[in-house]
Design a protein around this nucleic acid. Structure first.
Lengths: 236, 236
DNA sequence: TTTATTTAATGAACATCATTCACTTTTTGA
DNA sequence: TCAAAAAGTGAATGATGTTCATTAAATAAA
C-alpha cells in the first residue's frame, strides 16, 4: 500500500536532485553554458533520464524559478505576519528593508531564478515548458505582490488608501528591487560606483518613503491640484 | 582616393544591414529562436559573411544593445537640454515623465535591447563578444545616468544636494523604469491588472516625487533624526 | 518461487544550429 | 590586362538539446 507513496516520494526526490544539480551548474557556469550532460553528471544519472522528469532544459529552469518564487513568497508572508502581530510594530522602513534584504539574500543562492522569472515570458523559447509550471510561477509571484499590497493598505505608515494606489506602491517597490538588483548584478562585483548594495538599498527605501522632491520648509502654498490625476503641475 | 572612404561606408552599411535584419528576427522570433540562417536570409547574404562583420550571434546582440543605448543617450541629452534652456522650465515631474516615455517608446522598436543590456554581463556566454562593444555599452549607459544625475543636482525641484544623493535618485528612477518595463512586458499585452502602462508610469513618478509615506497633516513633531544615516526610525 | 507487466534508466543516434574554412567571385590598383 | 586583396559563399564541423530502441529493476500476479 505504501508502495505508491514511496514511489511518488522517490520520484519527487529524483526530480529535486535534478533541479539541485541544475541549479549548481547554472550558478557555476550560467544557463547557456551548462549542458544537460553537465547536469546529468552532477546528478549522477544519464542524460536521457532527465527527460522523464522535465520536458526541456528550459523547463528545468522554469521549475527552479518556481521553486524560488515559492520560497520567496513564504518569506514575504512571515515578514508581513511578524510586522502585523507584535506589540511594537516595526516601521514601514524597517519592513521594507527586511523585504529588500530577503529579496537580495534570496537572489544569491537562487542565482538566475529571478532573471528567469523576468524572462520567462519572452526571451526564452518557452515551447516545451510544462504549462502548469509557468502558470504557477506567475500566480505565486502575483500572490507575493498581493500580500504586499494588503500590508500597505492596512499599515498606517503608507498614504495609499485604495487598492490601485497600494498596488502602484507595490510596483514602485518591486520595480526598485528588480532594477537595483539588475544594476548591481550587472556591474559585476556587487558594488556600483561607491555604493555597497545593502547600504544603497536602505537609503533608497528611505528616499522613496519621503519622496525625492525638495521638501518645502514651510507649509506649501495652496495649489489648485487638479482632480486626482496629477499631484504635481507640469510647468512652474 | 575616395575608395577607402566608400569601402568603409559600404562596410558599415553592410554591418548595419545585418544588425537591422537581426533586430527584425529577434523581435519576431526572439533571440534564442532566431538562427543565423534566418538573419542571413533576411539580410540577403550568406551565413558565412555574417562572421566577417560580427564575432558571434551574441556579438550581434551586444551591438544592437549598444546602438540602442547610444540612441537613448542622445534622447536623454536633448530632453535635459530642453529642460534647462527654455524660459519656462518644465517641472521635474514633466521631465521625468518625458524620460520615462522615451524609455518605453524606445523600448518597443528596439525590442530586446534593454534585456540584452541587462543580461549582457551575466546570462549570456559573452565569450566572443567584441570587447570594445561591451565596454562602450557600459560606458554609454553610465553616461546617460550621469547626465540625469547632473540634472537632478542642478534642478531646484529635487532635494538631493550632493553627488551620492543625486546618483541614488537616478538609480531609483532607473530601477523603476527597468522594473516597470519588466513587469508590464512580462505580463504580456502591455497592461497589468487594471493599469495602462503610460498612466501607471505617470502616477508612479508622481508618487516617487512626493513619497509613499503618509504625509502628516500638521507639521511633524520634532523627531531626533539621527545624523544623516536614516531618515526614518526603525520602530514606532 | 516463478512469471508477466509496468516503471526506471541508459546511452547511442538524431537533428538543430553556431561556427569555421576551403573555395569562388568581385573589386582594386598598377 | 592582370595580380593581389577583399568580399562573399555554402558545405563541412562540432557542440549540444532531444529522442528512442533497448536493458535493468521493481512490482504484482500466478
Amino acid at each position: 500500500m505504501g508502495v505508491r507513496e514511496r514511489k511518488a516520494r522517490e520520484r519527487e526526490q529524483r526530480a529535486n536532485g535534478i533541479l539541485e544539480a541544475a541549479r549548481h551548474m547554472f550558478e557555476t557556469k550560467g544557463f547557456l553554458n551548462t549542458t544537460l550532460a553537465d547536469v546529468a553528471k552532477e546528478a549522477e544519472i544519464s542524460v536521457g533520464l532527465i527527460y522523464r522528469y522535465f520536458q526541456s532544459k528550459e523547463d528545468i529552469f522554469a521549475s527552479l524559478a518556481l521553486k524560488g518564487a515559492e520560497q520567496f513568497d513564504k518569506d514575504i508572508d512571515s515578514i508581513l505576519k511578524k510586522a502585523q502581530s507584535g506589540k511594537k510594530k516595526p516601521t514601514a522602513a524597517f519592513v521594507l528593508y527586511e523585504i529588500a534584504t530577503t529579496f537580495f539574500k534570496f537572489y544569491k543562492p537562487y542565482g538566475e531564478y529571478f532573471d528567469m522569472l523576468i524572462y520567462s515570458y519572452k526571451g526564452l523559447k518557452h515551447v516545451q515548458i510544462h504549462g502548469a509550471t509557468l502558470t504557477r510561477l506567475m500566480s505565486v509571484t502575483l500572490s507575493s505582490l498581493d500580500k504586499l499590497k494588503n500590508y500597505i493598505l492596512i499599515s498606517p505608515h503608507f498614504s495609499a488608501k485604495e487598492e490601485d494606489e497600494a498596488l502602484r506602491v507595490v510596483f514602485v517597490l518591486w520595480g526598485i528591487l528588480l532594477g537595483s538588483h539588475l544594476l548591481f548584478d550587472s556591474s559585476g562585483r556587487g558594488h556600483l560606483f561607491a555604493f555597497r548594495q545593502d547600504e544603497f538599498v536602505q537609503r533608497m527605501i528611505d528616499q522613496i518613503l519621503v519622496g525625492i522632491t525638495a521638501v518645502p520648509l514651510e507649509p506649501p502654498p495652496k495649489t489648485s491640484s487638479r482632480s486626482g490625476t496629477r499631484t504635481t503641475e507640469l510647468t512652474q
